[in-house]
Structures are given as structure tokens and as C-alpha cells.
Simulated scan of single mutants.
Amino acid sequence: MKKIIVILAVVAAAAAGAYFGAQSYFEKKVVQELNSFVQMAGVDDEVEYSSISVNPISREGLIKDVRVSDGSNFVDIKQLRFNIVDYTSTIEGIRLENLGQSILIDRINVLEYKTEGKYPQKTHITVDNFKIPLNSTPAAMKSLEMDELVMDMEIKTDSDYEEMMYEYEVFNIDVEGFTEFKSNFTFGDIDIKSYEKYSDMPPEELQNNQEFSNKISQDISNMKLYNMSISLEDTGIIEKIITERSKAEDIEFDEAREEIVEELTEIQERAASDFEKNALDSALTILKDENNRYIIDINPAQPISMQELVMLTMTNSTLGPIAEQLNMSIRAE
């Protein structure tokens, strides 16, 4: 019996030692990965934090009071929850300080992050309460009486590196009291993996690398758009524009709305193409409060490169031929 007890005690001690040894290993590994990541971003200082813990069984962890600094600029994170198996994470209480301006983010959720080698293959990320101060913005924004932009964002991607096809299934930005932007699009014909040779170069070296600059310029020119859909929903911007007009001219709200309607109607009558007339007609229905969503669909018969798109806009003074080439439609709902 005594031998059995001794054996069990040894096994328990070994298991405890393995547990805490694994915990220490994973904690060190996470810190190494964080430091490598910030160094890739051009920050030389190591990540600071108050505490870190990793469960070696579930592989879930928590880091508290994280700071990444670069001179007078820094990023503070209240806490970072993560899973080192599936790379999901939740980052809470984020403050970015840049040149005396603070940008706040309540939460970033990495809901899915699957890789193909070094490259993200499927991602799903949401951002809650992304707050940007407007103390140094153009007068046009200040006239709308907005002290800050408050945004929620959602991005969902799916990449096929062999076929060189990249789909943004969801690319949404909801600006509080302003507009809700929703989109999805597919582009391709860029070999992302061909950039692997530059992956270990520090940012400052890449900025001065002529070969890298030339490659990016060439790839952007050759990149092809396959399709795109955009939805813009009015959640306050129209009211702000009309209110600003009524204040500027000291007239009633409805009178200001009617003035803008008349101005757009005159522009519509002079429109050079049916597409432009339809686009303005859709805008008018939103302005009149008959609809609140503006939808743009682009489905070219053949994928169009960015270089072709630039040439198309440069050689046409009206939107009609461009819309026809892109098979673009606009409607209000």
C-alpha cells in the first residue's frame, strides 16, 4: 500500500510539474509572438503587461494591462483573451495615443482566423465602439455638429491563394447617427504569396525598397475587380445636412429640404445619361424620406483591372459609359 501511495504521489507531482511547466512554456511563447508581431510593425520596444496566464489544457489565456509604445505614441489594452489553438481572441479597452490624439475602441473580437501556411485564409473580425475625435477635421464635418465618429465594424474574408481569388464576404461600417455602410466584393489576380520574400524586412527598410514599391504598383494596376455590392443606409446624415442648410439660411427644416430637392431636380434634368438620371432619382427619394437605403451593384461581364478602371474614368466625362462597362446599377429601397 505504501508503495502504491508513493507511486501515486510521484505521478501527481510529475503531472503537476508537467502542467505548470506547460503553462510556463505557453506563456513565454505568447510573449515571444507578441514581441515578434510589434517588431514587424516597426516598434523596437518589447510589450509591457501586468500579468499573463495560459491554461495548458484548453490553451486559452489572458493578458492584462498591455502597453506597446513607440516614443510618445502608444497603445494601451485593458485585457486580451486568446486561444492559441484556433487564434480566436477578444481585445478589450483599447486606447491608441498618436500625436496627442486619443482613439478609443471598446472591443475587437477575432471570431475566426484560419491560415494557409503563413497567410490568413478565413477571417471574421468585429470592432465595437471605435471612437475617433473630430477636433482636427474639415469644416464640412464640424458643420454637422459631430465631435467624434463612433463606429462599429465587421469584416469577413475568404482567400484562395492558389486561384488568386480574394472575397470580402462582409465589409461593414456603421457610423452612429450618420450612415450604415455595408458591402461585399471579390478581387483577384494578385499572387499574395509572392510577397513572402519581403516578410522578414523591417517596415523602414521596405519603405526604401524600390523593387518592393515597383511590385506593389504593378500588382495594384493588374488587380481585377470581379464584383461589388454597396448599401448605404441613412441613419441621420440626411437630417444633419438639411438641418445645417436650415440654420445657415435661417429657414424651416421642410423649406430647407425642398430647396435641396429642387437643386437636385435641376441637376437631374441636365444629366447626360440615363444612369445619372436614375442615380439622382434614387437620391431624391431618400431626400424626400420615401426610402432610406441606396444600393450600388457592380457586376462586369469580364473582371476589370484597376488600370482599366482608371483609364475608363479618365476617357469618359460622364458616368453613363463607365456604368455600362461595369454593368453598374443603382436603386433606392
Rank of each mutant, 00 (worst) to 15 (best):
Y195G: 02
S282Y: 00
R270I: 13
T265Y: 01
K64N: 00
D86Y: 07
D174K: 00
I190T: 05
E116V: 04
L280S: 11
G71E: 00
E145Y: 15
V85H: 08
S36F: 15
E239S: 03
N278L: 14
D152Q: 08
F253R: 11
H124N: 12
E244V: 01
N299Y: 14
E258V: 00
L319C: 08
I295V: 14
D219A: 06
S183E: 08
V54P: 01
I295D: 15
K224M: 11
P120T: 00
T315P: 00
A140E: 12
A332M: 02
V170L: 13
N73I: 06
A12K: 02
N55W: 03
M1Y: 14
S305W: 00
E176Y: 03
F185Y: 06
E239H: 04
S231N: 07
A279P: 02
M1T: 04
A139Y: 06
E263D: 15
M153A: 15
I91Q: 03
E116M: 10
L326S: 01
S317Y: 09
G177W: 00
Y195K: 07
I4Q: 06
N227E: 09
T123D: 12
A14M: 10
A271G: 09
D297Q: 04
N327F: 13
S231G: 02
S102Q: 06
M306T: 00
I125P: 03
K197L: 14
G100E: 03
L287Y: 05
S305F: 11
T235P: 13
N327M: 04
K3P: 03
Q210T: 11
I108M: 03
R293M: 15
F187D: 01
T137P: 14
G61R: 09
Q307R: 01
I57N: 12
E262S: 07
F82E: 08
E255V: 10
K131M: 11
P56H: 06
M1I: 09
T90H: 12
P303L: 10
I296T: 04
I5C: 10
S159P: 11
A12L: 06
K131I: 15
T137M: 12
Q207P: 06
G320M: 03
Q121H: 07
I241E: 03
I63F: 08
D191R: 01
I260L: 13
F26S: 01
A9L: 15
Y198F: 12
I286W: 07
D281H: 08
N109V: 12
E196F: 04
D274N: 03
I125Q: 03
G71F: 01
A139K: 01
K29I: 11
D234Q: 02
G117V: 02
S24G: 00
N184R: 05
I237L: 14
M223L: 15
T243K: 02
D200Y: 07
A41W: 14
A13C: 14
G188W: 11
V11P: 02
F37N: 07
S51Y: 04
S51K: 07
V175P: 13
D189P: 05
D152L: 13
E27L: 09
A13D: 13
